[in-house]
């Protein structure tokens, strides 16, 4: 299996804490091409631990592309070079022997670095808390089949809902905008009859929160969509724009909240 072994040079961003300055550290690893990218980092960390050095901090959990924990900017691209793939699903067979790989944290003002490659994405939680829900309490809801929903609408809502909240859209956007993330939730809920009732206040509040977090504005570049591991569509941004304009000019609401 010798042909499955490759050597890589890694330029890994190291940073002690949020307000510390960071720098690239160079390491070399010998790895197997069947490994995932994170397993490659496991190898690096095992090396570092054996040398009694501090392992590289990076976030990961499910390692099957659904929890949204893993991040990393690999050679300039969030989640690396493959489309529709999270870092944990990126396998080393896509890299060449002898290659140098830059590994950096997501960079955005709203995503401060916690340590090394770990960033704080709690801004996303606060955006959801500002309105990314349907205000129903447990119990007392109608039967699941009480309201029929056109299949194509259910499918669009589902596709928007597949967002894993990883933040790659922000990391990829030249403006560090969170429009794709926010709009995915806005459009999922505005498409469904259950979410329609509070669609106006939802979009107003979520956009306000998004702005307050310090994300940039959308220039419709499309880098977010191209880098999104779940292929969340730019259409959602258009839907949010439409909802927002409607909520501002057509609805009878006078102010947010």
């Amino acid at each position: 299996m010798a042909h499955d072994e490759i050597s890589l040079t890694l330029k890994v961003w190291r940073q002690k804490g949020p307000n510390k300055s960071g720098n690239f550290e160079t390491h070399s690893v010998k790895i197997n091409t069947h490994m995932s990218f994170l397993e490659m980092l496991d190898v690096l960390n095992e090396q570092l631990i054996m040398q009694k050095k501090e392992p590289v901090a990076f976030e990961h959990d499910c390692r099957e592309g659904i929890c949204g924990s893993c991040s990393l900017v690999i050679n300039g691209r969030p989640h690396g070079p493959m489309q529709g793939t999270t870092t944990c699903q990126l396998h080393m067979r896509h890299f060449q022997d002898g290659e140098t790989i830059y590994i950096e944290p997501y960079r955005a003002k709203a995503f401060p670095v916690i340590k090394d490659l770990v960033v704080d994405r709690s801004a996303f939680d606060r955006i959801i808390q500002s309105g990314g829900y349907v205000s129903v309490n447990t119990g007392g809801v109608p039967d699941g089949n009480a309201i029929a929903i056109e299949m194509i609408t259910a499918k669009r809502a589902f596709e928007a809902a597949t967002c894993i909240g990883c933040g790659a859209c922000v990391a990829a956007c030249p403006n560090a905008s969170a429009m794709l993330f926010t709009s995915a939730k806005v459009s999922q809920l505005s498409l469904l009859p259950q979410g329609r009732q509070e669609a106006n206040q939802r979009v107003l509040n979520m956009v306000t929160q998004m702005d307050n977090e310090g994300f940039g504005l959308c220039s419709n570049v499309g880098a977010c969509e191209a880098e999104c591991p779940k292929g969340i569509s730019l259409d959602n941004i258009a839907i949010m724009n439409r909802e927002y304009i409607g909520a501002s000019f057509i609805s009878r609401r006078l102010a947010n909240k």
Binding site: Y133, V134, V141, G144
Partner: peptide, 9 residues
């Protein structure tokens, strides 16, 4: 029923 009401697609 609960999940549908929450907007689970």
């Amino acid at each position: 029923d609960q999940c549908v009401a929450q907007g689970v697609p």
